[in-house]
Design a protein around this nucleic acid. Sequence first.
RNA 1: GCGGGUAUAGCUCAAUGGUAGAGCCCUGGCCUUCCAAGCCAGAAAUGCGGGUUCGAUUCCCGCUACCCGCUCCA
Length: 489
Amino acid sequence: MPEKNELMERVASLSKRRGFIFPSSEIYGGIGGFWDYGPLGVELKRNVREAWWQDMVRGHDDTTPPPGMPSPYAMVGVETSIVMHPQVWKASGHYDLFHDMLVDCRHCKARFRADQLATSQCPEKPSKRPGEHTTCDLTEPREFNLMFKTYVGALVDPESEAYLRPETAQGMFTNFKNVLATARVKLPFGIAQIGKSFRNEITPRYFTYRSREFEQMEIEFFCRPVESRLWYEYWRDRRFRWYVSLGLSGERLRLREHGREELSHYSCGTADIEYAFPFLPAGEFGELEGIAHRGDFDLRSHMEGKLVRRGEELVVETGPDGKPRYPGSGKDLSYFDEETKERLIPHVIEPSAGVDRSLLAFLCEAYAEDAIPDENGIPQPRVVLKLHPRLAPIKAAVFPLLRKEGMPEVALDLYRELRKRWNVDYDDRGSIGRRYRRQDESGTPFCFTVDGQTIADGTVTVRDRDTTVQERIPMTAVAPFLQERLATG
RNA sequence: GCGGGUAUAGCUCAAUGGUAGAGCCCUGGCCUUCCAAGCCAGAAAUGCGGGUUCGAUUCCCGCUACCCGCUCCA
């Protein structure tokens, strides 16, 4: 295998060569932080999404308590708009967190908040404030906004300003009452969503890892405060196992619990699921998913207004007039617990995963270079994507060994049958070995070949991508064979 | 945002102040009874914009993108 720093280039090169990922707007020179998925990439990405949706939402049994948990829970999905009422982001805290007027020092490269210049220090002369030291060379205050701004309505004026969402989560919180009122759910329950989000990354980097337009798979899990710690641990462990079940190895994948000092001001527990991406320095990991215990921060924010910490308490931040600086909706988002006859504000566990980051991790993990003996027994190099069959863009390929003696006709029949249910390739071009290699680079887990014996006894060979071992099975067993191996996990 | 590097075909690389080559890949054909065989034919490139020059892919400037290191970060 290539060196670590080279591995990423090989993966990026394969992505381009085989049509997984392209730079966005490439014919115009590209645009930083944006990427396109090609014919294989879009299949892989849909498979990542669908595996998540199937495992978290569709396939969830809401009548049976998970092992060791006190109760069953419900899970429903939503798909909410990308542009939301601007007040959402003010109440949620994103507006302040992502939006600052900043001043840079051209000399010492330090960056300061414009509103804090008076209380900041010049890094080179701590006794003076920025701008007061002789070498200081400050820029004018510049607007620094990690949220994409847009305008709702054709008229461009400040009144119509809105933002592209920097996370999908707020759409679940703003629909908390709607879901409660319509989905016949009770605590505990989760709301799931997959969708695009946008952040103006300062430094887009590492291929698609840090993109400005990206896709999230998020769950907001609402539960009783007394059970929240238990559910936090449930989700943390369950989400970790999900990545393992789709092929990320124990060595490169890790679960990291945040230390106290690392926690957000509202969180009482956060864990990251991290992957040792090949572009990172040895020993460093990049986040795939964060599982955060968010307490009642979000629902309270949307009731009362933007919250700030005062000592151990979260209180509504007030403006000069004593009123909430960024008011919430004023709507009651509390929950009446029929079991305990209590009214409470549910606590929230948030497993928030990146689709593109997961995909990139699956791709990096799957990439392998090995050697397969040729007809003379001499090892020949091969590039193969050992993707989990559930994720593989093409599930199987069907080949006629030769383009004669009735083989193409039989192979086409098989192809057409399989094609009704799965993304399957038919290929009769070039030598059989070449065709196997093509599929290896695309990550196709199985190849079925129609040969002379097929015509005689109705069996085909199945060739396994990872081992290259072949076995014969009846043609009638091909669909059940695939069905079994592509089963949901 | 700062500094350094890079930019030639889908990929990996050559070359040149004067017609830009190759290997792989890809397409069509021939051949071929299981792991990148062979033969024939074909498609395909100097990131973008300026400048110098008779002529720039080559030299200079700017921009963009990517990589590396800082900075920043959810």
